[in-house]
Design a protein around this nucleic acid. Structure first.
Lengths: 209, 209
DNA sequence: TTCTCTTAAATTGGTACCAATTTTGGATGA
DNA sequence: TCATCCAAAATTGGTACCAATTTAAGAGAA
């Protein structure tokens, strides 16, 4: 149920790691930006210690890079790395397809359909962030159907490392609508228990973003 | 070339994280053991700060668990989690088989054969740790053939989370010899470019440990 | 004896301070 | 004018100290 980064106890005090990560993923902190500890302290209202720990964690996750005595800067993932990571995601999300097809109950499929509908409905009146979240929820629900409790965390970690500004990924309207259609089609293929076709769709869906 | 945990600059000062991890994986620090900061300080000859950072990193990797105001203890992975992680490794290491079969050069295969031989030769006169390392090297080399630069790190991370004492995994002589034979067979199937059979072998090889 | 409450010791975890290094800004000289 | 060197400021990163919490020990009552 917990992702690898979900270290918050209560909503009252979200971990600085998450706050910084959120700003990186939303594009506020661009790739290459140097993250000065003092700035982060004032920006997030946390002590020096917590900031240092957060930066170390993000460095471990390869979301920022640490240069000794110089500081931390937002990691620039080159094209090759992004492709490699996408490739890993494809292996995992297509790898579970046989099991998902074999074990998904009709209630699971109904639930997945609801999430696909949710994403679709947000095309018109949702914010970019809401779309991003809805997309995340759909894919997470799909992965959960594998019954593998560790897989969701692994994929979440990979997704965090992909694009440094994944939110802004949802640029064109056409692309969003295509994603929405593919979500629906994924549910269709799952309901029809067509494993191979579903695999192919999942692959192209991830590959295009 | 770097794994996710390889933060050492020179051999002169290995990171405390690696030292602690090594002792966990070698079984010196058993699952459930409470890792007291003072003990770790004296044991590894490092300052309080570095120990704290190391513990936080290991907690992020889910190798130890953190209980606020109580400390850190070695994580006990239950059977389900170990199975789930093995399942993920299978998806990844079988997922690359088609590409490896398609692109491996004869020199690559020769190199892999050498590593399989190396493992085999250590059965008689090698220590358990050397066997563990040799097995690691074989699998790493295999993964490298995929051309995916990120995959090796991901799998390394997964392997670290699997068994808490993976070194002691090589218990029986029969099991070691079976592993050695399977390594050789993997190289055979790769040389013969038999993708499907190789996939099946990789799966059973990982599944049995 | 055994349970419970109280007190002391041990441990964690945060804050503040300070040293080491790097960067910036400006002065000097070609 | 431009490059080089030096000094001051800024930044990182480690060490030491101290507060909060937990654990262990011991005294006292049933």
């Amino acid at each position: 149920m917990n992702t690898l980064l979900d270290d918050s106890i209560a909503d009252g005090e979200p971990d600085a790691t998450q706050l910084i990560l959120a700003d990186i993923q939303s594009g506020i902190l661009q790739p290459g930006t140097w993250l000065k500890q003092i700035d982060l302290e004032t920006r997030y209202g946390r002590g020096r210690n917590e900031i240092r720990r957060a930066l170390d964690r993000l460095a471990q996750k390869r979301i920022v890079e640490h240069v000794p005595n110089r500081g931390y800067h937002v990691y620039k993932a080159d094209g090759k790395q992004a492709d490699d990571i996408a490739e890993i995601r494809i292996m995992l999300e297509t790898g579970i397809v046989p099991k998902v097809v074999a074990t998904a109950k009709t209630s699971d499929i109904r639930n997945l359909r609801a999430l696909a509908d949710r994403f679709e409905s947000l095309i018109l009146h949702g914010t970019v962030l809401e779309l991003y979240e809805a997309n995340l929820n759909f894919h997470r629900a799909f992965v959960q159907l594998s019954g593998n409790g560790e897989l969701d965390g692994v994929i979440a970690e990979l997704r965090q490392r992909t694009s440094s500004a994944p939110v802004s990924q949802w640029k064109t309207r056409a692309r969003i609508e295509k994603s929405a259609r593919e979500h629906q089609e994924m549910v269709d293929l799952l309901a029809a228990r067509k494993a191979d076709e579903l695999k192919a769709l999942v692959e192209s869906h991830i590959r295009q973003g």
